[in-house]
Simulated assay, not measured.
Amino acid sequence: MGDTSHMRTTLRRGLAGLGAGALLLGGAQIVTQSAASALPGLVRTTATSAPGSTVEKSQTVNCPKGKKVLGGAGRVDGAPNGEVGLTFSSPVNGGAGFTVSAAEDADGTTANWTVTAIAFCSNEPAGLQYVQHTFTAGSTKSRWSSITCPKGKKVLGAGGRVSGAKGRAVLTGVVPSEDGRTITATAYEDEAGTTANWSVTALATCVKPSKGLEIVQAGTAQSSDVSIAAAPLSCPEGTRLHGVAGEVGGGNGEVRLRALDDDGDDTATARAAEDANGTDRMWSVRTYGICAA
């Protein structure tokens, strides 16, 4: 299931863009206060791993004491093009923090790269619940899994996790449904493939619908002429970013999702890049921003 275009929402379309520059390196952990919110005490926390060249790398950022993760974001910095891709981006430890993991492709890289995890934390909102579903492990080129929030609740944060592939399969999408209740995670084996049994897990942060809760989206055009693409969007005026999701369409494992990023000022961007061998396939990238007042 390399292309999940049939699951894309039509709630709101943002500005689309292409990007081909290197990403900025993340800094030390910070905590910043957002504007007043219907979800009180909203803060953004970040943490960046030490730079280095290793097959797989993970970074967790914890919420301040007394707060819970709503959603999050993450990115890979310092790696050439699509030689490193995301494998895990999700709330962890019962909402105490947010983890982002990434893995090098089969060719590897000698570059010193980092992983940055970003968590959106707040006082516990009404009806907060973390749900997940794992599709049975197997060895197929692509796999997917979906999870739906309980009746009366909506998605505020989204996550996906690939397990058991040892870097030979990466996330290709974490996608909210049109009604804002379901998250679908998709993954694809890279060109090297694997005989290992691996699985993909979809995760969702569910809450009772809050003021201004809306899923905003932006996407690039299908193309085979770019090696890196990005689709930035901004939350509507009066709302704040609470979670980031995104997907690669058409890459079939030859395009790696390297960022589901919070660029600051309530702006989200999904970034993707072709692997070192490139591809003549038509592909695109789409960003979903989960926004609320």
Results as ranks from 00 to 15, higher is better:
residue 175 V to P: 14
residue 153 K to I: 00
residue 159 G to D: 04
residue 149 C to Q: 04
residue 152 G to Y: 03
residue 174 V to C: 09
residue 142 S to P: 07
residue 153 K to Y: 03
residue 169 A to S: 06
residue 141 K to D: 15
residue 168 R to H: 06
residue 173 G to C: 06
residue 176 P to V: 00
residue 145 S to N: 07
residue 138 G to Q: 14
residue 160 G to A: 06
residue 142 S to V: 13
residue 179 D to M: 15
residue 165 A to Y: 00
residue 140 T to Y: 12
residue 175 V to D: 10
residue 181 R to W: 09
residue 141 K to R: 14
residue 179 D to Q: 11
residue 157 G to Y: 09
residue 146 S to R: 15
residue 166 K to L: 09
residue 157 G to L: 09
residue 160 G to Q: 05
residue 165 A to H: 01
residue 138 G to W: 13
residue 158 A to E: 10
residue 140 T to V: 15
residue 167 G to R: 09
residue 159 G to R: 04
residue 138 G to P: 10
residue 156 L to I: 13
residue 183 I to D: 02
residue 185 A to C: 02
residue 174 V to S: 09
residue 140 T to L: 14
residue 157 G to K: 05
residue 185 A to G: 04
residue 142 S to M: 12
residue 141 K to H: 14
residue 154 K to H: 08
residue 177 S to E: 09
residue 140 T to C: 11
residue 141 K to N: 11
residue 178 E to F: 01
residue 174 V to N: 09
residue 154 K to E: 10
residue 155 V to E: 03
residue 181 R to T: 14
residue 165 A to K: 00
residue 145 S to A: 14
residue 145 S to F: 09
residue 169 A to P: 03
residue 185 A to D: 01
residue 136 T to I: 11
residue 156 L to D: 00
residue 166 K to Y: 09
residue 178 E to C: 01
residue 155 V to D: 08
residue 184 T to G: 07
residue 148 T to Y: 05
residue 175 V to K: 11
residue 178 E to K: 08
residue 143 R to N: 14
residue 168 R to A: 08
residue 148 T to S: 15
residue 157 G to A: 14
residue 140 T to N: 12
residue 156 L to H: 01
